[in-house]
Amino acid sequence: MNKREFLKSLLLLLHAGGFVGALARWAGAKETGGKEGEGKAPGGADAKGEANGKHDPARHWYGMGIEIDKCIGCSRCVDACKVENAVPPEPFFFNTWLERYVIAKDGEAVVESINVKGKSSREMRQDDGEVIRSFFVPKLCNQCANPPCVQVCPVGATFSTKDGVVLVDANRCIGCGYCIQACPYGARYLRPESRIAQKCFFCYHRVAQGLLPACVEVCPTQARIFGDLRSKASRLVRFTRMNKIHVLKPSLNTEPKVYYAQLDGEVR
Protein backbone atom coordinates (compact mmCIF):
# COMPACT_ATOMS: atom_id res chain seq x y z
CA MET A 1 0.00 0.00 0.00
CA ASN A 2 1.52 3.29 -1.04
CA LYS A 3 1.06 6.56 0.71
CA ARG A 4 -1.70 7.74 -1.62
CA GLU A 5 -3.72 4.57 -1.26
CA PHE A 6 -3.28 4.69 2.50
CA LEU A 7 -4.57 8.24 2.71
CA LYS A 8 -7.52 7.36 0.49
CA SER A 9 -8.57 4.47 2.66
CA LEU A 10 -8.08 6.54 5.78
CA LEU A 11 -10.39 9.17 4.36
CA LEU A 12 -12.93 6.51 3.51
CA LEU A 13 -12.68 5.08 6.96
CA LEU A 14 -13.21 8.47 8.52
CA HIS A 15 -16.23 8.99 6.36
CA ALA A 16 -17.59 5.62 7.25
CA GLY A 17 -16.90 6.35 10.88
CA GLY A 18 -18.73 9.59 10.59
CA PHE A 19 -21.63 7.84 8.93
CA VAL A 20 -21.77 5.16 11.57
CA GLY A 21 -21.54 7.82 14.23
CA ALA A 22 -24.35 9.77 12.70
CA LEU A 23 -26.39 6.60 12.39
CA ALA A 24 -25.75 5.77 15.98
CA ARG A 25 -26.74 9.23 17.07
CA TRP A 26 -29.92 9.01 15.04
CA ALA A 27 -30.75 5.59 16.38
CA GLY A 28 -29.92 6.74 19.86
CA ALA A 29 -32.21 9.67 19.54
CA LYS A 30 -34.95 7.34 18.47
CA GLU A 31 -34.48 5.03 21.41
CA THR A 32 -34.16 7.49 24.15
CA GLY A 33 -37.32 9.23 23.25
CA GLY A 34 -35.94 11.95 21.08
CA LYS A 35 -33.57 14.43 22.57
CA GLU A 36 -35.92 16.59 24.56
CA GLY A 37 -39.15 16.28 22.69
CA GLU A 38 -38.36 15.71 19.06
CA GLY A 39 -41.83 14.31 18.71
CA LYS A 40 -40.68 10.71 18.89
CA ALA A 41 -42.13 8.15 21.16
CA PRO A 42 -39.66 6.47 23.48
CA GLY A 43 -38.29 3.05 22.83
CA GLY A 44 -37.51 3.63 19.20
CA ALA A 45 -41.02 3.84 17.87
CA ASP A 46 -41.18 6.26 15.10
CA ALA A 47 -43.79 8.93 15.44
CA LYS A 48 -45.17 7.90 12.05
CA GLY A 49 -48.93 7.77 12.22
CA GLU A 50 -48.64 9.71 15.44
CA ALA A 51 -47.58 12.76 13.49
CA ASN A 52 -50.24 14.88 15.07
CA GLY A 53 -48.20 14.49 18.21
CA LYS A 54 -50.85 12.35 19.82
CA HIS A 55 -49.73 9.23 21.60
CA ASP A 56 -51.34 6.14 20.08
CA PRO A 57 -51.31 3.37 22.70
CA ALA A 58 -52.17 0.66 20.20
CA ARG A 59 -48.78 1.08 18.53
CA HIS A 60 -46.61 0.37 21.59
CA TRP A 61 -45.91 -2.30 24.13
CA TYR A 62 -43.69 -0.94 26.85
CA GLY A 63 -41.29 -2.73 29.09
CA MET A 64 -38.13 -2.12 31.06
CA GLY A 65 -34.78 -3.82 31.13
CA ILE A 66 -32.55 -3.77 34.18
CA GLU A 67 -28.90 -4.63 33.99
CA ILE A 68 -28.05 -5.61 37.51
CA ASP A 69 -24.29 -5.50 37.02
CA LYS A 70 -24.53 -1.86 36.07
CA CYS A 71 -26.47 -0.73 39.13
CA ILE A 72 -24.18 0.99 41.61
CA GLY A 73 -26.88 1.53 44.24
CA CYS A 74 -26.80 5.32 44.09
CA SER A 75 -30.61 5.53 44.54
CA ARG A 76 -30.95 8.45 42.19
CA CYS A 77 -33.80 6.65 40.47
CA VAL A 78 -35.65 6.31 43.76
CA ASP A 79 -35.22 9.99 44.57
CA ALA A 80 -36.19 11.09 41.08
CA CYS A 81 -39.31 8.98 41.23
CA LYS A 82 -40.35 10.36 44.59
CA VAL A 83 -40.07 13.88 43.24
CA GLU A 84 -41.63 13.23 39.86
CA ASN A 85 -44.63 11.33 41.16
CA ALA A 86 -45.15 13.00 44.55
CA VAL A 87 -44.49 9.75 46.38
CA PRO A 88 -44.51 10.45 50.14
CA PRO A 89 -40.91 11.20 51.13
CA GLU A 90 -40.97 8.97 54.20
CA PRO A 91 -39.24 5.64 53.71
CA PHE A 92 -42.47 3.60 53.72
CA PHE A 93 -43.90 4.12 50.29
CA PHE A 94 -42.10 3.53 47.03
CA ASN A 95 -42.96 3.24 43.38
CA THR A 96 -39.43 1.97 42.91
CA TRP A 97 -36.83 0.94 45.46
CA LEU A 98 -33.43 -0.69 45.68
CA GLU A 99 -32.57 -3.96 47.32
CA ARG A 100 -29.07 -4.90 48.35
CA TYR A 101 -28.10 -8.54 48.43
CA VAL A 102 -25.03 -9.71 50.28
CA ILE A 103 -24.39 -13.39 49.93
CA ALA A 104 -22.02 -14.94 52.38
CA LYS A 105 -19.78 -17.91 51.83
CA ASP A 106 -22.24 -20.26 53.46
CA GLY A 107 -24.87 -19.18 50.93
CA GLU A 108 -26.87 -17.13 53.42
CA ALA A 109 -28.27 -14.02 51.79
CA VAL A 110 -28.70 -10.80 53.73
CA VAL A 111 -31.22 -8.58 51.98
CA GLU A 112 -32.03 -5.01 52.76
CA SER A 113 -33.65 -2.10 51.07
CA ILE A 114 -31.08 0.64 51.11
CA ASN A 115 -33.85 3.22 51.01
CA VAL A 116 -35.29 2.12 54.32
CA LYS A 117 -33.32 2.73 57.46
CA GLY A 118 -34.79 0.90 60.39
CA LYS A 119 -33.33 -0.33 63.62
CA SER A 120 -32.21 -3.57 62.07
CA SER A 121 -30.56 -2.05 59.02
CA ARG A 122 -26.83 -1.58 59.17
CA GLU A 123 -23.92 -1.00 56.94
CA MET A 124 -21.58 -3.78 55.90
CA ARG A 125 -18.63 -4.26 58.22
CA GLN A 126 -15.15 -5.61 57.78
CA ASP A 127 -15.78 -8.50 60.14
CA ASP A 128 -18.92 -9.63 58.35
CA GLY A 129 -17.18 -12.74 57.14
CA GLU A 130 -16.40 -13.65 53.60
CA VAL A 131 -18.86 -12.33 51.07
CA ILE A 132 -19.01 -14.16 47.79
CA ARG A 133 -21.52 -12.06 45.90
CA SER A 134 -23.03 -8.67 46.45
CA PHE A 135 -25.24 -6.62 44.18
CA PHE A 136 -28.16 -4.20 43.98
CA VAL A 137 -31.55 -4.93 42.48
CA PRO A 138 -33.86 -2.09 41.48
CA LYS A 139 -37.47 -3.08 42.00
CA LEU A 140 -40.67 -1.57 40.65
CA CYS A 141 -44.08 -2.59 39.36
CA ASN A 142 -43.48 -5.19 36.68
CA GLN A 143 -46.36 -3.94 34.53
CA CYS A 144 -47.41 -7.56 34.28
CA ALA A 145 -49.05 -8.66 31.06
CA ASN A 146 -51.24 -10.96 33.11
CA PRO A 147 -51.67 -8.75 36.15
CA PRO A 148 -53.39 -10.19 39.23
CA CYS A 149 -53.96 -6.67 40.53
CA VAL A 150 -56.17 -5.87 37.56
CA GLN A 151 -58.00 -9.13 37.91
CA VAL A 152 -59.01 -8.52 41.51
CA CYS A 153 -59.92 -4.83 41.42
CA PRO A 154 -63.66 -4.86 42.14
CA VAL A 155 -64.45 -1.62 40.36
CA GLY A 156 -62.03 -1.78 37.46
CA ALA A 157 -60.02 1.17 38.78
CA THR A 158 -56.81 -0.72 38.08
CA PHE A 159 -56.54 -1.51 34.40
CA SER A 160 -54.07 -2.35 31.64
CA THR A 161 -53.55 0.13 28.85
CA LYS A 162 -53.12 -0.99 25.26
CA ASP A 163 -49.45 -0.15 25.43
CA GLY A 164 -48.99 -2.51 28.33
CA VAL A 165 -48.88 -0.22 31.33
CA VAL A 166 -50.99 -0.94 34.40
CA LEU A 167 -52.64 2.22 35.68
CA VAL A 168 -54.87 3.18 38.60
CA ASP A 169 -57.84 5.44 37.96
CA ALA A 170 -57.59 7.82 40.89
CA ASN A 171 -61.19 8.89 40.49
CA ARG A 172 -62.61 5.45 40.74
CA CYS A 173 -60.43 3.55 43.22
CA ILE A 174 -62.38 2.82 46.39
CA GLY A 175 -59.26 2.01 48.37
CA CYS A 176 -60.23 -1.55 49.21
CA GLY A 177 -56.63 -2.72 49.06
CA TYR A 178 -57.38 -5.97 47.28
CA CYS A 179 -54.83 -5.14 44.58
CA ILE A 180 -52.19 -4.62 47.26
CA GLN A 181 -52.87 -8.13 48.52
CA ALA A 182 -52.85 -9.58 45.03
CA CYS A 183 -49.55 -8.12 43.83
CA PRO A 184 -46.83 -10.70 44.44
CA TYR A 185 -44.08 -8.09 44.26
CA GLY A 186 -45.09 -5.62 46.96
CA ALA A 187 -45.30 -2.93 44.30
CA ARG A 188 -48.44 -1.28 45.63
CA TYR A 189 -49.42 0.84 48.59
CA LEU A 190 -52.32 3.02 49.63
CA ARG A 191 -51.46 6.69 49.31
CA PRO A 192 -51.70 8.05 52.84
CA GLU A 193 -53.53 11.26 51.96
CA SER A 194 -55.91 10.37 49.18
CA ARG A 195 -56.30 6.76 50.37
CA ILE A 196 -56.23 5.30 46.90
CA ALA A 197 -53.91 2.64 45.51
CA GLN A 198 -50.66 3.76 43.95
CA LYS A 199 -47.63 2.19 42.34
CA CYS A 200 -45.13 2.71 39.52
CA PHE A 201 -46.84 3.45 36.22
CA PHE A 202 -43.74 3.86 34.04
CA CYS A 203 -44.20 7.66 34.29
CA TYR A 204 -47.01 7.31 31.79
CA HIS A 205 -47.49 11.08 31.72
CA ARG A 206 -43.92 11.45 30.45
CA VAL A 207 -43.92 8.46 28.14
CA ALA A 208 -47.07 9.66 26.38
CA GLN A 209 -45.18 12.85 25.58
CA GLY A 210 -42.19 11.02 24.20
CA LEU A 211 -40.09 11.34 27.33
CA LEU A 212 -38.42 8.62 29.37
CA PRO A 213 -39.54 7.60 32.84
CA ALA A 214 -37.80 9.74 35.44
CA CYS A 215 -35.79 6.85 36.89
CA VAL A 216 -34.42 5.90 33.48
CA GLU A 217 -33.61 9.49 32.71
CA VAL A 218 -31.45 9.97 35.81
CA CYS A 219 -29.69 6.62 36.02
CA PRO A 220 -25.99 7.50 35.62
CA THR A 221 -24.95 4.03 34.48
CA GLN A 222 -27.91 3.28 32.24
CA ALA A 223 -28.75 0.27 34.31
CA ARG A 224 -32.38 0.90 33.45
CA ILE A 225 -33.45 0.58 29.85
CA PHE A 226 -36.90 1.69 28.85
CA GLY A 227 -38.39 0.79 25.53
CA ASP A 228 -41.06 -0.42 23.23
CA LEU A 229 -41.11 -4.12 22.58
CA ARG A 230 -43.08 -3.58 19.37
CA SER A 231 -40.28 -1.63 17.77
CA LYS A 232 -37.38 -3.69 16.44
CA ALA A 233 -35.03 -0.75 16.73
CA SER A 234 -35.71 -0.22 20.40
CA ARG A 235 -32.91 -0.45 22.90
CA LEU A 236 -35.03 -2.72 25.02
CA VAL A 237 -35.41 -5.23 22.21
CA ARG A 238 -31.68 -5.15 21.68
CA PHE A 239 -31.16 -5.57 25.41
CA THR A 240 -33.37 -8.64 25.49
CA ARG A 241 -31.49 -10.04 22.51
CA MET A 242 -28.02 -9.42 23.88
CA ASN A 243 -28.61 -10.63 27.43
CA LYS A 244 -29.88 -13.72 29.07
CA ILE A 245 -32.86 -12.31 30.83
CA HIS A 246 -35.10 -13.36 33.64
CA VAL A 247 -38.24 -12.07 35.29
CA LEU A 248 -39.30 -12.16 38.93
CA LYS A 249 -41.45 -15.04 40.22
CA PRO A 250 -42.16 -16.51 36.77
CA SER A 251 -43.99 -19.45 38.32
CA LEU A 252 -46.90 -17.17 39.22
CA ASN A 253 -47.58 -16.58 35.53
CA THR A 254 -47.95 -12.84 35.89
CA GLU A 255 -45.82 -12.31 32.77
CA PRO A 256 -43.77 -9.38 34.05
CA LYS A 257 -42.44 -6.85 31.58
CA VAL A 258 -39.50 -5.77 33.67
CA TYR A 259 -36.63 -7.89 32.40
CA TYR A 260 -33.54 -8.45 34.48
CA ALA A 261 -30.12 -9.32 33.13
CA GLN A 262 -27.70 -11.09 35.49
CA LEU A 263 -30.46 -11.83 37.96
CA ASP A 264 -29.31 -13.93 40.89
CA GLY A 265 -31.40 -16.87 42.02
CA GLU A 266 -31.61 -15.40 45.51
CA VAL A 267 -33.72 -12.49 44.29
CA ARG A 268 -37.44 -12.81 44.95
Binding site: Q151, L190, S194
Partner: peptide, 19 residues
Amino acid sequence: HLGRPERSFEIFLTPNPRS
Protein backbone atom coordinates in the same frame (compact mmCIF):
# COMPACT_ATOMS: atom_id res chain seq x y z
CA HIS B 1 -62.34 -0.30 56.00
CA LEU B 2 -62.43 1.20 52.50
CA GLY B 3 -60.02 4.03 51.83
CA ARG B 4 -62.86 5.85 50.10
CA PRO B 5 -66.14 4.56 51.53
CA GLU B 6 -68.09 7.29 49.77
CA ARG B 7 -67.26 5.62 46.49
CA SER B 8 -68.44 2.16 47.50
CA PHE B 9 -71.41 2.36 45.12
CA GLU B 10 -68.92 2.06 42.25
CA ILE B 11 -68.93 -1.64 42.99
CA PHE B 12 -72.49 -1.73 41.63
CA LEU B 13 -71.99 0.78 38.83
CA THR B 14 -68.85 -0.59 37.23
CA PRO B 15 -68.25 -4.02 38.68
CA ASN B 16 -65.29 -5.87 37.29
CA PRO B 17 -66.69 -9.29 36.41
CA ARG B 18 -63.30 -10.93 36.88
CA SER B 19 -62.99 -9.73 40.45
